[in-house]
Amino acid sequence: MKLLFLERVILETLGRGKRELHKICQDCSVEKNVVENILYKFFNEKLILKNKEAFLLDFSKREDFLEEIKKKGNIKEELKELLNYFLNIFINSENKVQFGLKKVWVGEKDEKMLELYLSKIDLLLKKAEASNKSNNSNKKLSLKKVIFWGSCEYELLIKEALKR
């Protein structure tokens, strides 16, 4: 099964514990009919159970599921969808979304500095992630920030673009 972005969102919400339909909608800011459609699909895929009015994840009949969604090809498609939305928001909104892209020659010293800054960001976010697990059970999922960074040699992108 290949997860769509919105399906991932619902999965993350249910990953926080069992929830009723309206709570799921509130937590992830997704419209009711969309949530219902996704839950229906998850139900058919045997990924969730319904306990009275609450829905909860249950992978006991689909042990392959987590492995499947972690496959490189599936992750790639999910990322492409997310980045596509991000770029749409960035292009259509003024100043609300931060995005930076530079093409520069980086000297040896600057490269080390860059690595240092990036590893500091990484550390900061890992700490935030760890504290999220214990302190943010009441916060809405949709209030999370999405942060990404990375760099690569221009040549790699050129080679990729040249692939037939």
Binding site: F5, L6, N33, V34, N37, I38, K80, E81
Partner: peptide, 16 residues
């Protein structure tokens, strides 16, 4: 893959 996903997304947004 892109077309398939786009259709699936539209399908999710469909009303009952």
């Amino acid at each position: 893959e892109f077309l398939r996903r786009t259709l699936n997304i539209a399908e999710l947004k469909r009303n009952k």
